[in-house]
Computed example of a mutant assay.
Amino acid sequence: MTYVIVKNEEVGACYYRQKDKDFTKDLMAASKWPTVSRAEEILAELSKTGAQELAIEETAKLKQQVKQEQVVKKDTELREYAHQLLTAKDREFYAELERVSRFLAASPYLLEEISAKISQEDGTVLQDLLHTIELGDYRAYEGLALLKDLRASRKKRRYYKDRQQAVNYLLTKTNTGQVNTTSDKARVALSKLGDLQVERNYNYRNSGLQAKYAKLLEKQPVQSWVQLFTRLRKG
């Protein structure tokens, strides 16, 4: 469960984005805090700057409201798209049909390629780095290099995982290994793709690590790797 800071304006609800020190209409891009008390701390800081009409809301409830609005909007867009196809010239109509068909036909191979990339990062790369960290005798600058490579590997893995999830929204794999899709699956994909294009939050499983490192995930700018390690030592 997470919380956001909401500001009601004439254009509608806006949500605080700590990285920019500003408000956005995009709930997915808003900063989110794991506890009400942490959100209250940020709210108190904002109030000192003169900001008014601020409130703390549970992210899940707001997401549900936004999704309901998006369903109505998406249905309207799909009807307009269908009308455009109906009235399109033959060349445009069949070009669009070929584009969609080509993607669906290639999707099983796409998933195979993505799975191989994820396995590479989870297997070979991650294990090499973790064993080097565990067994290696390295100096500070070499430790920074290891951390940088580990982070790069996890970001690459996330890149492929997001694409895997996006394709899986659209497809269903049968017991025989065949990959199928329906218009209903396509609707699900359209409704969820936006969730993959926002800042990712993480809920710690270990309370000790959460107390020590959670502030590092609040998207505060870090000027250098040296500064990052300085902050970790202070924590």
Score class of each variant (00 low, 15 high):
residue 2 T to Q: 09
residue 3 Y to M: 02
residue 6 V to N: 00
residue 14 C to E: 02
residue 14 C to R: 03
residue 14 C to K: 05
residue 18 Q to H: 13
residue 24 T to C: 01
residue 30 A to S: 11
residue 32 K to A: 10
residue 34 P to N: 10
residue 34 P to Q: 12
residue 35 T to H: 02
residue 38 R to Q: 11
residue 38 R to P: 01
residue 41 E to L: 12
residue 42 I to A: 02
residue 46 L to Q: 11
residue 46 L to G: 12
residue 51 A to M: 05
residue 53 E to A: 13
residue 53 E to V: 09
residue 55 A to T: 14
residue 59 T to D: 01
residue 61 K to E: 00
residue 63 K to V: 02
residue 68 Q to L: 09
residue 71 V to N: 04
residue 72 V to G: 03
residue 76 T to G: 08
residue 76 T to P: 01
residue 77 E to Y: 06
residue 80 E to R: 14
residue 81 Y to N: 07
residue 84 Q to A: 13
residue 84 Q to T: 13
residue 85 L to A: 03
residue 86 L to M: 04
residue 91 R to T: 15
residue 91 R to A: 14
residue 94 Y to N: 11
residue 96 E to G: 14
residue 104 L to E: 10
residue 105 A to T: 15
residue 111 L to K: 09
residue 112 E to S: 10
residue 117 K to F: 13
residue 119 S to I: 06
residue 122 D to Y: 04
residue 125 V to R: 01
residue 131 H to G: 09
residue 134 E to N: 08
residue 137 D to V: 12
residue 138 Y to E: 05
residue 142 E to S: 14
residue 142 E to A: 15
residue 147 L to S: 10
residue 155 K to P: 00
residue 159 Y to A: 06
residue 160 Y to I: 06
residue 166 A to N: 15
residue 172 T to C: 12
residue 177 G to M: 09
residue 179 V to W: 15
residue 179 V to K: 08
residue 181 T to S: 15
residue 182 T to E: 10
residue 182 T to Q: 11
residue 189 A to I: 02
residue 193 L to K: 08
residue 200 R to W: 07
residue 201 N to K: 11
residue 208 G to V: 11
residue 213 Y to R: 06
residue 213 Y to Q: 03
residue 219 K to T: 04
residue 221 P to K: 04
residue 230 T to N: 13
